[in-house]
């Protein structure tokens, strides 16, 4: 799809073209270790506002960890990671190092970032519409009637208006994930992060979730999607980032990266997932 020229001239090191200030996400030399395992190794990349970036790579390559760092569900150990123009989860201290932000500030930053989980993580004690309206009511202090009305509209937007009073366990996987997307959208985020949103779904339900995401991209939402759905990457992404062993090894437009990968590890990975 056509998202304008500003996203076309990407370079191999992952630097995106958009001018400073329009960047939704900016990573600079990000490192993270789990114990002795170096899960993110000097990761630098940018996501421009309005851009859709799909992150691919073999399991254990660090792509989910990278995504979770973008809303501070994981802490970075070194480097700089800016989301919506601010260091996420940290502030610069006098010594030039990073100090973790207060819990209140981290919560405030996360209000601007929607996150969709592989396992949906819907609240099982609440109905679909209550799932969607909970955060607007409790966090944004929206009046209950208004929050429920908006939640109803969002459920309509993801195509399950008739399931508003169903509990999560009464919904199919695809329906649950669409409620989860509506729940994230209810906070009116500037950026949406998707962590393998279709990996836990039965094959016949993948399409309905991808369609909702396609719709979202069409409306201009900034999205970072960790996914193995190459069809979605090809059709919707402005850029694809290929990760392996904690590093970004290749970045490019989907047509280029998926069809003529420059890196042999990208070739090896794609030959496995495409066949």
């Amino acid at each position: 799809m056509n998202r304008g020229d500003s996203t076309m001239d990407t370079t191999q090191d992952g630097a995106a073209p958009a001018a400073a200030g329009q960047l939704a996400v900016q990573g600079d030399g990000v490192h993270k270790w789990f114990g002795r395992m170096h899960v993110l190794d000097d990761v630098s990349f940018e996501v421009a506002s309005g851009e859709v970036v799909v992150v691919i790579g073999p399991s254990g390559s660090g792509k989910t960890t990278l995504l979770r760092c973008m809303n501070h569900l994981e802490r970075i150990d070194r480097g700089r990671l800016l989301v919506n123009g601010h260091l996420i989860g940290y502030r610069e201290n006098a010594k030039g190092g990073l100090t973790e932000e207060s819990e209140a500030e981290i919560a405030r930053q996360r209000q601007e970032i929607g996150f969709v989980f592989q396992q949906f993580n819907l609240f099982p004690h609440l109905t679909a519409i209550e799932n969607v309206a909970l955060a607007p009511i409790r966090v944004r202090k929206v009046a209950k009637d208004q929050a429920l009305a908006e939640a109803g509209q969002l459920l309509g937007r993801v195509g399950i208006a008739d399931k508003r009073d169903a509990y999560p366990r009464q919904l199919s996987g695809g329906q649950q994930q669409r409620v989860a997307i509506a729940r994230a959208l209810a906070m009116k985020p500037r950026l949406m992060l998707f962590d393998e949103p279709t990996s836990a779904l039965d094959p016949e339900m993948v399409g309905e979730v991808l369609e909702v995401m396609r719709e979202l991209a069409r409306d201009g939402m900034t999205m970072v999607v960790v996914s193995h759905e190459m069809g979605f990457a090809r059709g919707v992404a402005d850029r694809v980032i290929m990760m392996d062993e904690g590093r970004i090894i290749e970045t490019g437009q989907p047509g280029q990266l998926l069809d003529e990968p420059a890196h042999e590890r990208t070739q090896a990975f794609l030959s496995k997932v495409l066949h």
Binding site: L73, E103, A107, I113, F117, L134, M187
Partner: peptide, 16 residues
């Protein structure tokens, strides 16, 4: 644990 993560990803504080 995913329940807490989902709540916090929506901007809720730990108490909430």
């Amino acid at each position: 644990r995913g329940q807490t993560e989902a709540a916090e990803s929506l901007g809720m504080r730990r108490r909430q």
